[in-house]
Design a protein around this nucleic acid. Sequence first.
DNA 1: GATGAATGAGCCTTCATTCAT
DNA 2: AATGAATGAAGGCTCATTCAT
Lengths: 174, 174, 174, 174
Amino acid sequence: MSSPKERIIATTFELFARQGYNSTGINQIVAEANVAKASFYQYFKSKEDLCVEFLNVRHEYWFNELNSFVSKEKESKSKLMSSFDFLIYMNQKEDFRGCSFLNILSEISSDNVKILNVIQNHKKDVRNYFSQLIENKDLADHIYLLFESSIIESQLFRSNELIETSKKIITQLI
Amino acid sequence: MSSPKERIIATTFELFARQGYNSTGINQIVAEANVAKASFYQYFKSKEDLCVEFLNVRHEYWFNELNSFVSKEKESKSKLMSSFDFLIYMNQKEDFRGCSFLNILSEISSDNVKILNVIQNHKKDVRNYFSQLIENKDLADHIYLLFESSIIESQLFRSNELIETSKKIITQLI
Amino acid sequence: MSSPKERIIATTFELFARQGYNSTGINQIVAEANVAKASFYQYFKSKEDLCVEFLNVRHEYWFNELNSFVSKEKESKSKLMSSFDFLIYMNQKEDFRGCSFLNILSEISSDNVKILNVIQNHKKDVRNYFSQLIENKDLADHIYLLFESSIIESQLFRSNELIETSKKIITQLI
Amino acid sequence: MSSPKERIIATTFELFARQGYNSTGINQIVAEANVAKASFYQYFKSKEDLCVEFLNVRHEYWFNELNSFVSKEKESKSKLMSSFDFLIYMNQKEDFRGCSFLNILSEISSDNVKILNVIQNHKKDVRNYFSQLIENKDLADHIYLLFESSIIESQLFRSNELIETSKKIITQLI
DNA sequence: GATGAATGAGCCTTCATTCAT
DNA sequence: AATGAATGAAGGCTCATTCAT
């Protein structure tokens, strides 16, 4: 069996993404990870710390999935469109739970700089991702903005409709 | 002095918007509203019910503020641009706390239909708002999507930068 | 429609018998009786007072039902046996909820003389009931004791088995 | 000093027997047991669970006391009579609080199978107890029924009169 | 390195009752 | 005669965290 820390992270990865940050208690995590309460606090100073770790793991996971998904395409423009299909793919896979980063953003207090930074860095990377696909910086930001709203609107309406709308818009833009 | 119910709603209006749903306890609400706990439950069946009431009040407040803000403009296109300036105005007024509806969306479980419906209806109205300003339906949705990401990105980065970006984009679109 | 007091009593009659004393709140009573809270306290000084009223009403109801049930029989011995069939009849009618008096006895604190007296008087009347059917005082008490245990044992096991056992015993006694 | 769990059980043992189930709050238990609220819930999933534990402890205690009490007698018939004296002994010791199992039976809702089972099993054991003392099964049940009513009637009237009556009856039966 | 035991503060909700009109 | 509004106290339960070993 894996180490306690690994089991904590694996369990947290699943629970935070599915239930959210505040709705997931340390009790549930240590119970499902089969780890002693005190062991948890040996690896994570606080729940906040665990959250940072979660976001880091999620960051890596998310970009891996994204890159893997769009790697089927060769051209930049195809990769771009495929990025929006990736959202549809994720919505199906995770039942329209939206973006873990934005969800946690809504759950923390605005002076929680530690977590805020991690979320900001993730989104900066997303923005960069589009900048690398598209030469025109303004266009890249434009698409980034459509990407972001695609995520939250599909979460809100539990539907991919506005992702498709975004795809249509982008087809005309590029 | 005002009635207990009014005080509860006023206090909730402030606290839910500032601290979020889960981070605001009934205890804090009744304490700051100077109301007995049991009085609270005479007016609201549950915290969930209070949330619905809050969202309704917030809905009305938000659209009133928006309409009042853009009423300075006469032309549709000016009203449109002014809507984005409204976001800047609100960010300053509320310290970049973002959209109460989207924030609460992130806090509830996805099977909470009661609250989900209220949030969806609010956003449908926002979408409608742009549909009434712009004849071209596709363009209206396009702008709605930019509006939504403008809200969350400015919340995330505590900056109006991407609102300005959106404004620039829209200037070119219309 | 009937008067508030009547509605309170009717509702209480149903709820106390079905749910028990402690599990039935004043709130539920006034809600189901469609009576204002303050109206309730105009007729009943306290929940305890209502309990006394309930027990009195129940007393009358129970003896009426019993006498009506056994009135089919003419002979004393037949009435006696029929009294135990009455328990079977009531168990079916009220789903083995047992004796309201003994149930409430278990719910009150032992220094609650007011309610205790009402319960004692009811049971004295039951004991008298058998004394009037049977000349032999000792035998009457004997049967009273079997009657009492018949009630609680059938409540406990949700079965009439021990009532039938009692009947068999009594057949041999008389 | 003893462990929290032991203190909880000891306190509960006293309070449930004395005040009853519904009238004893978790708050009072943890206060008198000098235990943190959360500690309580580490050992007992719910108040219902504590009730089951209480009934189990009480079951063991009660039979131990009974067997110890009647062990002074050698003959079955003497043990039988002594069992009724045990009730008198307990009434004095516990101030006519009656049977914890029957008292709790009156406090729970009839669909509470978990607790109901424990109560039923206790009483089955009591019934068995008499079956082992008396060969004649019907007579054993007869005495069991007198035993049960002896308990509740002495609780109700705060008097051992009907226990003595039962003893007299039994003397004639055996 | 790993743990089980213990905690104080707080969660949402309901209780029986009294007030002013 | 009847009411709607308001309440303090308590209900059962869960939170993230720390302690001693």
